[in-house]
Amino acid sequence: MTGFRTLLYKEVLRFWKVSFQTIAAPVLTALLYLLIFAHVLEAHVQVHGVPYTAFLIPGLVMMSALQNAFANSSSSLIQSKVTGSVVFVLLPPISYGEFFLAYVVAAMLRGLMVGTGVLLATIWFAVPAVEAPLWILVFILFGGGIMGALGMIAGIWADKFDQLAGFQNFLIMPLTMLSGVFYSIHSLPGFWQQVSHFNPVFYMIDGFRYGFFGVSDVPPETSLAVVGSSFALVSAATLLLLRSGYKLRS
């Protein structure tokens, strides 16, 4: 277990040492979103009977947590691959299971820290209710885990930074931005509502938001089932990739 614990410690220390960039910056970005959207929409929009600013906050918290969980594992892997320092974790007797857990837990922790930061920074504008704290925790952890594992896949697959940026800009960003962070999908035309149901990030946001307001677009149990099985699927894929040595062990 010392191998896993050390790798986790190193992964956390890695983002903590540059926390201005890895935690403070995404908190500021989320705050800017809130300032703009709340300013424009607060007087006009209520969702599920909740004022718009309060409705928006959990979505921003979750979106920031998800994006940063993905960024953490993917950037750590691509950096160590490009610089070659990945050998330091490939030479020791660390199993691929430990390897997977260390990167995913570190990604979850970064997501949790960024999410907490966004919540604390936005709480001055509106205090969202907290109806079911356990749901909140479950969804942010699962969400961070899914994105952390996806980040591992992207980091292992990409050979160059621009390939990783492509993955991030053309897959992760649209999935998170179009997941109902800024709106309830019930406000969308029927076709786009249907499309949203195929986006797993929608269930992460919706279940997470249920923990705050006790209301959601779909039942939280459905969201949990989708998010739980997504986590299992992505984890299995990542573990298979690691076991095969794909792009890590030639």
Binding site: T6, L7, F88, P93
Partner: peptide, 14 residues
């Protein structure tokens, strides 16, 4: 020193 401590940990040595 951090590098060497971390590398020790990877090999299970604290």
């Amino acid at each position: 020193r951090e590098t060497l401590r971390i590398q020790s940990g990877y090999f299970g040595i604290r």
